[in-house]
Amino acid sequence: MGSGSILRFMENEAQIVALSVMALVYALKLRWIFKKNLVKEITPAKGDPQKGARLSLLSIAMPWTMESMLKHPLRYFEFVIFHLGVTAAIAASFIIPYAPKLFTIESVMYLFQGITGFAFIAGAVRLIKRSIMPDLRLISSMDDYFSLIVLDVWLLTAFFGIPNKDYTALISFFIMTAFFLIFVPFSKISHYLYYPFARVYFGRHFGRRGVYPKVGEKNMEAAK
């Protein structure tokens, strides 16, 4: 097998297999979760559970609604950049094999490189913080560190792979991507699978009780 066909295999078949493994594990996980009893509230609603759920899902994009995000704008900024980088890298893993022309447009290519590059820096900052801040260190498991390290390395390979020119960079990116797809369901990175459910349950519960969305805009000023 020549280097061209190895790359093609890594871009296509390997990704499809890895994706299928991921989908299967996720399906099993969801089945397991949905077998669990869903606690339902009997008391008639005071607020609007549906509105609560909608806003709760969007809350991550509304930092002003949460004291914790307002108090730590830098952490919020790191979070946004890091997750934008992950999204850009995922998009790149499809663009390179299926729409390579897009990265021939220089501005698009630089935009993706910029995002993944900054995301890598944000990831490194997060790793340093996790390693040195006592309150973060105390709650961190090996999974927390390792997931962050591999994710950051993956962002770096994406950064170098996005120009779609260098063979080593591309093969590294796609090997990392395939590894990821298989690794993610077994790691803390699978939080994104639970996330929508967590936010919806949260929003419904507090929305129903009239707690969420919160009242009292002045709180936020004081929290700053």
Binding site: M69, H72, S140, D144, S190, H191, Y194, Y195, A198
Partner: peptide, 11 residues
């Protein structure tokens, strides 16, 4: 879900 979704972000 609450057990599984914590990412130990410390927020």
């Amino acid at each position: 879900i609450s057990f599984g979704v914590c990412v130990h972000c410390g927020m």
